[in-house]
């Protein structure tokens, strides 16, 4: 399936020494055997495939600048209205995979994606796919809150305006208010909609970014470590929010916090060294992991 050999210098990963030292108690694990094993596996452990999925991805490879392969043959289905958490050590390719789902990788020079990625049966990387329209359907929230240097109102109204969702002011007002309410921010900012979005606290800024994303009524929201820059209270607020948003959106969230994955997701996908190792119901992954790499990771032996 994959012919590109993985060497230590292609990716910032734990070295063989670290890994084997960490897991020496059970079985000796060196990076070469892990890679061999992952290469042999034809599909991830667990339940990667669903009936009638929102996203259907097979054999996805991602290369940065030809020589560097970041993702190796990922096969994964993502269901409608589910929250799927993607976990794994740094540099394991989970963010890269996430950014394939709305073609945000297009903005990176030298990034090449191969394989099959379908959204509702439509080819994401197809010739007649317009990334602009795709991203309107698949919104994104980033690790660091990045409100535009505009007023709170204009931040939320940005998407509806560029997509021409409304022509009159009162409709736009409604969309802004509705989005801010869904993001649980409206009560905090309703008296200062015209003040700059950058003046809010970190947690509020991230909720503003979520409001901004849902203002264009996407079908999917991708979240790339949305709470890693926030304190525990702001994190809790956003986690509650994600649970509510599940009613109307499909949510893919990359996170470094396993507790967070366990709290908010229905399914969890574990990535390692660019391979998708295991996918299953979140409960199963955390209580009864089937792959020893997953087990090592969630028990904190490495990663």
């Amino acid at each position: 399936m994959n012919t590109v050999a993985l060497t230590n210098d292609t990716m910032p990963l734990p070295t063989a020494k670290d890994v084997s030292a960490a897991s020496s108690k059970d079985q000796p694990l060196d990076i070469q055997t892990i890679v061999e094993e992952l290469k042999q596996a034809s599909q991830p452990v667990g339940v990667p495939f669903l009936d009638d999925p929102k996203f259907y991805t097979r054999d996805v490879d991602v290369f940065y600048n030809q020589a560097k392969q970041a993702i190796f043959g990922v096969d994964l289905d993502i269901g409608k209205n589910e929250v799927i958490a993607m976990i794994g050590p740094s540099g394991c390719g989970k963010s890269t995979f996430l950014r394939c789902l709305n073609r945000m990788n297009d903005t990176i020079d030298g990034c090449k994606v191969t394989g099959q990625l379908l959204l509702d049966g439509e080819d994401i990387y197809g010739k007649d796919q317009d990334p602009v329209l795709l991203r309107a359907r698949v919104g994104m929230v980033f690790q660091k809150p990045n409100p535009f240097p505009k007023s709170i109102y204009d931040n939320v109204a940005y998407g509806p305006r560029i997509h021409g969702l409304t022509t009159n002011r009162s409709e736009l007002d409604d969309i802004v208010e509705d989005s801010l309410k869904k993001a649980g921010l409206f009560n905090e900012v309703k008296d200062r909609l015209q003040s700059p979005g950058t003046g809010l606290s970190g947690g509020q800024q991230q909720r503003l970014c979520i409001a901004r994303a849902i203002a264009v009524s996407p079908e999917v929201i991708l979240m790339d470590e949305p709470t890693s820059a926030l304190d525990p209270i702001a994190t809790a607020t956003i986690e509650e929010l994600i649970d509510e948003l599940r009613q109307s959106f499909t949510i893919c969230i990359v996170t470094h916090s396993m507790q967070q994955a366990a709290r908010i997701s229905q399914r969890t996908a574990y990535f390692h060294l660019g391979y998708l190792v295991e996918v299953n119901k979140t409960n199963t992954v955390f209580t009864n992991p089937q792959h020893r790499l997953t087990e090592n990771y969630i028990t904190g032996r490495f990663g």
Partner: peptide, 20 residues
Amino acid sequence: AMRDGSYGMGATRSETIKQV
């Protein structure tokens, strides 16, 4: 991050340049 935010919402390049 500003560009990502804008592209992530389905803005085109020219919209991103003009508005952000």
